[in-house]
Nucleic acid binder design. Structure first.
Lengths: 193, 193
DNA sequence: TTTGTCATGTAAGTTGTTACATGATTGG
DNA sequence: CCAATCATGTAACAACTTACATGACAAA
């Protein structure tokens, strides 16, 4: 049911088509709740049936495909407020990567070390993205309005999380006697290509 | 498919019954990959059909219920090694809590602040649990064997994550002009009961 | 006598993933 | 001419959740 809540939030911020929402779930809100376009269209259809949204058809002017713009009804906004009043249930965290690290005594150690290096790079890149985003959208965090503050706080959480992930990878590589210089393979390949 | 991998790791560490695995997924490995007993029994049945495990029936000696002890076959161990050779795909993170914080401009601000306080408490408790676990099982991390090291590294990741979560909650509460003293409700209730 | 632990499952429903499908326009 | 972008969906399958079901023993 929770994709519905994420869509409620996104539509409250700004009415959108299914396609628009798909792009939003590829970034911003999607960093905290991922979803594919198939899921989004299915849930939007249900939300329409439940009277949480209205649809306005917009013709593409013969040039672009027609689009359906969804916006929240009063019932939709009500549902959103209700949800914010419920305490968030315990989240079920799942990290395939953590399980794989723990599999090291029974698997291919070198491959897992290489995977740690890879994960470090992925999360370092995500961290850079977030930091750039903060600089762009929130240059003066001390003077944010009540409406802008929450999005900044969520971004701060993302920054903390990614930074923590990168530091964890570094700690693992140090403990395993491997650091970034252990993987000249990747470097050689990327420079020679 | 990934619950299968988590079960492969857990059975590689120690053969177990479905019931044993359920308890393990309530702690230790379960902190990084959650699963209920229904999921576990279903996947075990499939793994048996696929020849990844063997079952040894153990009678409860008339006292306890009979149990089926699962252990990995050579094929099961092979499957595990193969999996460690595959790079971990991008993980889809989902945080209902982060989405809810972002819903603040459209919802009940006081309720969300109370939820942040609650989340802080939950994660502070988890952090304490991890730290105690580290002290108990890994009193001298500098001298861990290759087989013990991975489990410690994963625990370190958990500690980092929970610590980061608590700090994030504190940052949010400070930015929202609320701190722990804002919730005398909970304190009053817990002391008066 | 009721609650908790041990131990296994079935059934139904909701989500999430992967693959398939269409069709026009724009840019290289 | 080929790939990418815009825009919407269907279908099939896999995974996950919630509820229901059984039955014995031990302890409070």
């Amino acid at each position: 049911m929770s994709l519905e809540h994420a869509i409620l939030v996104s539509l409250a911020e700004q009415p959108a088509s299914g396609y628009d929402l798909t792009r939003r779930f590829d970034k911003s809100i999607g960093f905290f709740w991922s979803a594919t376009h198939q899921q989004i269209y299915r849930v939007l259809a249900r939300m329409d049936a439940d009277g949480l949204v209205t649809i306005r058809r917009q013709s593409g002017g013969g040039v672009r495909p027609d689009r359906k713009v969804y916006r929240l009804t009063t019932a939709g906004r009500g549902r959103l407020v209700e949800w914010t009043r419920e305490p968030t249930p315990g989240e079920t965290h799942r990290s395939e990567f953590a399980v794989k690290v723990r599999a090291m005594p029974f698997g291919d150690r070198a491959a897992i070390v290489a995977d740690i290096v890879r994960q470090r790079a992925v999360h370092a890149e995500q961290l850079d993205y977030y930091v750039a985003d903060e600089r762009r959208h929130f240059p003066d965090p001390a003077r944010l309005s009540d409406d802008e503050l929450p999005a900044w706080l969520v971004l701060r959480g993302g920054i903390r999380q990614e930074r923590g992930y990168v530091e964890w990878c570094d700690e693992m590589l140090a403990a395993l006697g491997a650091d970034a210089t252990t993987t000249p393979d990747t470097l050689v390949r990327s420079t020679s290509s």
